[in-house]
Design a protein around this nucleic acid. Structure first.
Lengths: 169, 169
DNA sequence: TTTTATTTTCAATAAATATTGAAAGTTTAA
DNA sequence: TTAAACTTTCAATATTTATTGAAAATAAAA
């Protein structure tokens, strides 16, 4: 397979996986493109390679910087901005874990905590019992996941995967 | 807070979390409703509670059964079908992990394997080098995640969380 | 200052995704 | 059989989400 063909396939695959997991397809594609590019690219180059508009490219790049996955670069004597991605997969995984935890998991845990404590009802009412038990169980699971993510975010790669691999005995 | 109000909030929160992670909002809501319901519900009752159409309810319930999260129940002398959800959060987590691995992660790993091995290029070309290195690194990460999920799927709850918690030392 | 290069914004539009509802299909019972 | 009770299907429609593109804003250079 030729390199250009392979690049496109990689960008496609990454875009698809992203969209299946609630990440904008274009965002995943721009990220993929920067990941397989040795240097940094301008908005112009990204627009051209992925056939997307200036507005889309600009917003997507800002999003990616917001996720901590991409950075801007300025070059002496040049006015336009260049963008490049951190290529360390462990950093990427941690960064994504960190953001999704903050944006999506933590708010839900907050609601679950409220629902675990502030609902009135009769202990003999099966509807009440089932509700509180389910909410408590899910809350517990969510907190386990939350803690695991926190550990991952703080950890060094080797230490983390070392620990995970011990699970296999 | 009153039970009815709390139920609605729970259904809302679960629907939102689902949609942020690429799971149809209605599907997550139907699942949430069944989770906090002591017995089993008919399509009719689900339609009414969530204000959705018969078609939507029917398709969503079949999807949920496809994910292994919900089951049908038949009652003697009754013609209509009842639906109930497995309420064990560990089973739910494992089931979701299992399905998403099969549906989304494994296909991507297959593509990454191909891209890791079948691309021709010149070792002195930075574009080629960056591409192969990135693809290999991501492939490695994806396989680590895949293995971890497999372990989780096979594991018993206590054993698994015990192992995870050891990570915290 | 004025011009030019570049980035940002956002209303309009397009595309993707989810939902409806009525017709067709199925199953049981009279 | 025929009818009644229920489930399934899917084309049409609605909703949500993503994208465009041109105008406005910003920043450097002339």
């Amino acid at each position: 397979m030729q390199l250009e063909e392979a690049k496109l396939q990689f960008i496609q695959a990454w875009g698809k996986l992203g969209s299946e997991w609630g990440i904008n397809r274009t965002m995943a594609q721009v990220h993929a493109l920067l990941l397989i590019t040795p240097g940094a690219l301008t908005t112009e180059e990204i627009m051209e390679t992925l056939a997307i508009s200036r507005g889309n490219a600009n917003m997507t790049l800002r999003d990616l910087m917001g996720w901590g996955l991409v950075e801007k670069q300025h070059r002496l004597g040049e006015r336009k901005e260049y963008f490049f991605a951190d290529k360390d997969t462990w950093n990427i995984a941690r960064q994504v874990a960190k953001e999704r935890r903050k944006r999506e998991l933590d708010p839900v845990i907050k609601i679950l905590d409220e629902l675990s404590s502030k609902v009135e009802g009769d202990t003999n009412d099966p509807a009440y019992e089932t509700f509180t038990k389910t909410v408590k169980d899910i809350n517990k699971l969510a907190k386990n996941v939350d803690k695991s993510l926190e550990t991952m975010i703080k950890a060094e790669e080797n230490w983390f995967w070392g620990s995970i691999l011990k699970i296999f005995k």
